[in-house]
Design a protein around this nucleic acid. Sequence first.
RNA 1: GCGGACGUGGCGGAACCGGUAGACGCAGCGGACUUAAAAUCCGCUUCCUUACGGAGUGCGGGUUCGAGCCCCGCCGUCCGCACCA
Length: 879
Amino acid sequence: MTSPSPQTSTTTERYNAREAEPRWQKIWDERGIYRTANGDPRPKYYVLEMFPYPSGRIHIGHGRNYVMGDVVARFKRMKGFNVLHPMGWDAFGLPAENAAIERNTHPGKWTYENIATMREQLKLLGLSLDWSREIATCDPSYYGEQQRIFIEFLKAGFVYRRESEVNWDPVDNTVLANEQVIDGRGWRSGALVERRKLAQWFFRISDASEELLAGLDTLERWPDKVRLMQRNWIGRSEGLHVRFALENAAAELPQEIKVYTTRPDTLFGASFLALSPGHPLTEALAAGDPALKAFVEECRRGGTSTAEIETQEKMGYDTGLKVAHPLGGPSVPVYVANFVLMDYGTGAIFGCPAHDQRDFDFATKYRLPIVPVVLPTGADPAQFSVADGPYDGDGTLFNSQFLDGKSVPHAKEAVALRLENEIRGNEPVGERAVNYRLRDWGISRQRYWGCPIPVIHCESCGPVPVPEDQLPVRLPEDVTFDQPGNPLDRHPTWKHVACPQCGAPARRETDTMDTFVDSSWYFARFASEPGTAPLQKDAADAWLAVDQYIGGIEHAILHLLYSRFFIRTLQKIGRVSVKEPFAGLFTQGMIVHETYKDQAGKWLFPEEVEKRPDGTAVRVGTDEPVTVGAPEKMSKSKRNVVPPEVVADTYGVDCARWFMLSDTPPERDSEWTSAGIEGAWRFVQRIWRLVGDTVALAPAATAAPADFGAESTALRRASHRLAANVADDVERLRFNVAVARVHGFANEFGDALSAARKAKTVAPDLAFALREAASILVSVIAPMVPHLAEECWTVLGGAGLAATAHWPASDPALLVDDSVTLPIQINGKKRGEITVPKAASPAEVEQAVLALDLIAEALDGRAPKRIIVVPQRIVNVVA
RNA sequence: GCGGACGUGGCGGAACCGGUAGACGCAGCGGACUUAAAAUCCGCUUCCUUACGGAGUGCGGGUUCGAGCCCCGCCGUCCGCACCA
């Protein structure tokens, strides 16, 4: 893209961002104005952007949420709050291990080098961060505390261990993350992935389902969308557990199967029962049935990701078993079916093909009866058919004995009542149950670059927590990545330790924790001052909850739900007092940019492309045409990135900040364009000129005169209103509206300045109003373009720094007008205007309107049918 | 399939609780300044119409004195979830 180089201009009146920005950053840094102290008497405000993964370098697209958070932080500081605005690094994770393999380096070295680079890039953006509280989750002091918390959770019963399936690469002999499985094959080896069971650690998040669901109602400053996504994810349902008695099971087998159903009303439509391949009864049967065993293995093939499971065709295996119908209907056969999930409900279902798509598909394939039992309202029972597909709507029961004629909810209730009161073997046959989709959180990862799980496995004592005085369990440095598998597992010495309980030779847990654990409490770590214990109750209680959390919508479910669970659990064990970590949440949109490809189909960087006036694009310095693609999320692979350094050198970071806040509402995706950044540059220069012009016309600050004329009063109204309105906009994170308002004011202010310039002299009241306007303008833009604001502040002779100044107070008297201009409608169409005193009564307004010529013409001598006067708003005359 | 959001000029988007639709910016056009250019400043810029005037917030209806906003029915786009019994 062709870009002018504004900074190469030597015109002295121009604002020189490249010179000013580093200078102010140095001054802020030296004075430590963004360092936050605990125990400050001012009210607290905690603003936080989701911390980044140190992947290498940032591009300007990453900057948007940090800039938004920075505007809030700076604004709240000006409003008198003690603001905490920290930054850290989500530093553990798989990419570091991949980099280690590719570059033959250590994951820690790679990570810390990236952190160093990205820290400098973030500093370039002029963010008002308290860098003294910086943390990296891969720091032993951080993950050591996490191990301590893990052990406390374990002792309090929030953690347990069980077998669970993983993706297994049989060639590389390694566990794969879901994203490493591509089309059912290992990403590196290309081998067909298998599901294999491993003993793994779980957090009991599903026990918290109900409170996590209920807690959503308290999160009023969260987007409804995110709350809804979490609600669906938790997936509460109400149903019935029903015990089906087996009629022909061998004596050594269980004699019944328990199923969960949300549709007990359709029991008379049941034509089969289906067990999950992982169901204990399936396993018991498979032990003596090689064909079933083969079927179960067939079901196991393929990855564990839901995407893969869900695309499989329905398959079943008839076990030959039969169950009695609990309400006296005919017996039904028992199948094992691949589509029944072991993790949900009881791992067994009853199938009612007439009213469920999956059951319908299954019954059709295996030629099982399809008996409709719910008749849509108004349908003719003789005509109604489900031959073309199941019916899952409301209606009236039929073909259902004692349920016939009842509505679906009434039938559900009737079945529940009947089965609850039917006792078999001391227990009711049916029991009402609430079920949740949410499953326990598996945190074991067979990886090196993560927080070691602080447990020692002993042959005789079982899993034993690492004693407090041996924490943190540090990652060994001397590891290699030249072969697949977990380096911790094959390290020669690391895992061999004595059992803390009996002293016998034992083995360390070699799994590390899911990195979502790291990000589930980092915001609590920021609360305690540097050099102190990572999780201090007093500090955490003082700062939490985060008042404004800002990040991408992609974390709407997992990160935010896990953090909510983690903080609730910390609260239960007495480590913190709050229950919800984030009081306010905002999800910002991405920065997108056009993509460019050359003739060979190779991606090009924006700076390699030149736009011609005729609308075509070519490679810089050539005639080679370039294909311009739709704007997409900035990404390294597509090369549609803009590095922050380039923007800073060309226009200055204030331009980038202003541009990122302009035009597009912050929750939507925003397109980065050269026209946009140039517009921001023009604006920055314009502010600079407005301030310069002000000082030229009114060189010295003066005390407020006793009286103001019409011109100066009008200007003061505009500037005082600006301060009030922008405060409101920023408070509501409507940055694009705030920007538009500043533009509007700049237009008015510019007009006032040129009018003053044309007049021979500037009266004292106008001189005061001009300087006041400039000062308010500078204060109002300070959170958004902080460097420019400092430079202007200096020119205006402001005390101290713009960054530490107070938000300008608006004189209430200047915010209200004493007269108001009302539009006049005739039959709902605007035909004129009238200016009346603000205090005018509706009757007075009505009289004034009727006296107007345009009304007399419209009425043509007739009396109006009706006149609606909405005070301060509008007048509508119905002719 | 289920759930949700959105649909306003050439473009990004404003419009508070149902009350002047198109603020502000971008792009474009015209003008001033300049030897010239850049920069800057001024003006125009929803559509139709020479004008008067009329139409207009995806489409069709409705409620209302008045609808971008509320209700009903469509169409389209985007997002999330999905064998959850």
